[in-house]
Write a protein that binds this DNA or RNA. Sequence first.
DNA 1: CAATATATCCTGTCATTACAGGTCATGCCA
DNA 2: TGGCATGACCTGTAATGACAGGATATATTG
Lengths: 260, 260
Amino acid sequence: MGISLMTDPLIIPLSPVPLYTQIKDFLRQRILEGSYRPHQQLPSESEMSAIFKVSRITVRQALSDLQNEGLIFRIPGKGTFVAKPKVFQHLAQLEGFAEAMLRMGYEIYNKVVSHKSMPASPAVAHGLKLEVDTPVTEIKRVRHLNREPLSLEITYLPEDVGERLRNIDLPTRDIFLVLENDFGIALGRADLQIDAMLADEELARQLSVEAGSAILRMERLTHTASGKPLDFEYLYFRGDAFQYRLQISRQGADAPGRAG
Amino acid sequence: MGISLMTDPLIIPLSPVPLYTQIKDFLRQRILEGSYRPHQQLPSESEMSAIFKVSRITVRQALSDLQNEGLIFRIPGKGTFVAKPKVFQHLAQLEGFAEAMLRMGYEIYNKVVSHKSMPASPAVAHGLKLEVDTPVTEIKRVRHLNREPLSLEITYLPEDVGERLRNIDLPTRDIFLVLENDFGIALGRADLQIDAMLADEELARQLSVEAGSAILRMERLTHTASGKPLDFEYLYFRGDAFQYRLQISRQGADAPGRAG
DNA sequence: CAATATATCCTGTCATTACAGGTCATGCCA
DNA sequence: TGGCATGACCTGTAATGACAGGATATATTG
């Protein structure tokens, strides 16, 4: 029952651990302890199937879980690889600014409102360092937390990258992770601007608030590791969502409240 | 190719959308719009298999994704159900205190250090409102973020609940979600206490810091919705991990820095 | 009537098979 | 020698079948 390569043959679990869990734990340990190094290719699914003497579907279940944990990524036609840790920790901080306030850890879902090509506006062109009217891809998404819309995110990308995103499951996946892992684009610095505004008609509709409600607007320009501007975004957060963070801050440290 | 019950037959996607994605999107929309109500039982996997005219494995892939998104939960032998939204949003705020600072959204993994039964210490007994020496379950976990240990979490639960957790995949799953969804225990208020301390030998070893490093300690007592104390925890965070949050706060609002 | 046994339904797990489509190196051909 | 076709390899998707084990209602038995 047990998998000899993975567990001491003498240790036979009393309540049998599922095969895919054994494989998952085995691979995770190897990755975390460094036996499999970042960016290293893992054996193919077929090879693991032979090594562990299980069917490919069982191997895939283990790999899918590890992918969800962020430890590995897969490229169709190429193979399965160990993900790099902390590659964009600094970006995570930025994402964290939005996430830390809003993401409570449950029920994250991004509704893709539109995904189209259009000529770059002056602002977008300036951000991405392109000529005005160069075709760019615009993606509008509404982030839902616990089934309530919490932010509208409008993303502008160079058209070649934007088109490749059409094959990606955007409702579930994180664009940064796709750029890094699926597309192999290393990310670097990001610039932020933050201000407040009132909800217009579209924002009110998308975020299920009344027109004129308070909105926190963030402008974010993310660069590749080599410094080329890649991802220009407008993020609109529901103002009332901010209360969570304030409550948290009050309890956590001596951060001051902020009228809200 | 398309699934007639789900999409307008006139709309034929140019690049064919996988069947499981179609099913996933269909169910998600029904859940989000409220056609399927919280706690409502979905058709069984076999029924969906017949309804959508796909194999059960395809249905399961869709359901697994929805489970990861937190929209549904499954009980072996009973069925698949719509999860309740926002049930412990107030808890999420507390979780958010830890998560918001530490969770950057990538590579979360909990290493289970130990999981055993033991007599309740006076502090634990007082928290859980039990007699001293009543058997309770103690679970020690080290939370890893981006492959670095960031917090040691020691959880005390009544023994009956703690034993049921042995069948749960704790490295991947969230205890609160398990209590709510798998065990059907509605959660309510939680009480917090926070202070600072220095790392002792065990903490230093578990968190990969030097003994004497700064540690933020949190004591959390979570109650059921009916007010019965259920989950008593000690959370030890690496002090240096706090810088992230401070940086975030600085950018976001006028929260003061904190010497780190 | 109560306790037990049984049948049934459901999710969990796993094997086998098959084909599509992306990637990439090899080798053929112009 | 450069460009293209081919094939090997890999992941993605999907069907079919099977059995285990939990949950539950029904039927059987003491």
